[in-house]
């Protein structure tokens, strides 16, 4: 049964994002804009993982993301691993890294920030990466990991 499942989900060419924490699963989907892509994809969550207990995985055929796009998921899934697949083989393994600037993914947690009342693309400077802290370039307030809401 296990083998059969793997067979179904194996891809010929594309990107596999593994070790996504299940609670970050839908945020990763949103950040990568997967709902807008018309490619073959296999999504799974709450799968058993030796490393993190339960995990989610995303397998995307025939798509390779630039670093700057895929690094955005580090905000919600810093331990995620990327496998680049070519001809059914893993040709490259990558880790995601939090970028220095975040544009348009996160909502500023300050209810009095102008970005929460006008149509504005949010902009943040990442001031801490270990425990993620984002400084809003508009209101200058910090949005921390616990209060981070993906738009």
């Amino acid at each position: 049964m296990k083998d059969k499942m793997l067979e179904v989900s194996a891809i010929e060419n594309g990107t596999v994002i593994d070790h996504i924490p299940p609670k970050a699963f839908f945020k990763v989907i949103a950040i990568l804009g997967l709902e807008k892509l018309d490619i073959q994809m296999t999504l799974g969550t709450n799968l058993d993982s030796k490393k993190i207990g339960k995990k989610a995985i995303v397998k995307l055929s025939d798509i390779f993301f630039p670093d700057k796009d895929v690094n955005k998921i580090a905000l919600v899934a810093p331990q995620a691993k990327l496998n680049i697949i070519k001809n059914y083989n893993v040709v490259e393994k990558r880790v995601v890294e939090i970028p220095d600037d975040i544009v348009g993914i996160v909502k500023c947690m300050n209810p009095k920030c102008i970005t929460n009342s006008e149509k504005i693309i949010t902009k943040f400077k990442v001031v801490s990466k270990n425990e993620v802290k984002l400084k809003c370039l508009y209101c200058e307030k910090i949005t921390d990991q616990d209060n981070m809401q993906v738009i």
Binding site: C108, N110, K112, C113, I114, T115, S117, E118, I120, C136, L137, Y138, C139, E140, K141
Partner: peptide, 22 residues
Amino acid sequence: LEGSARFASEISSVPIINAGDG
């Protein structure tokens, strides 16, 4: 609202002086 002056400075064709944003 906080950040309103920064936002205004991005869209205005003339300079903005912030006289207090929240």
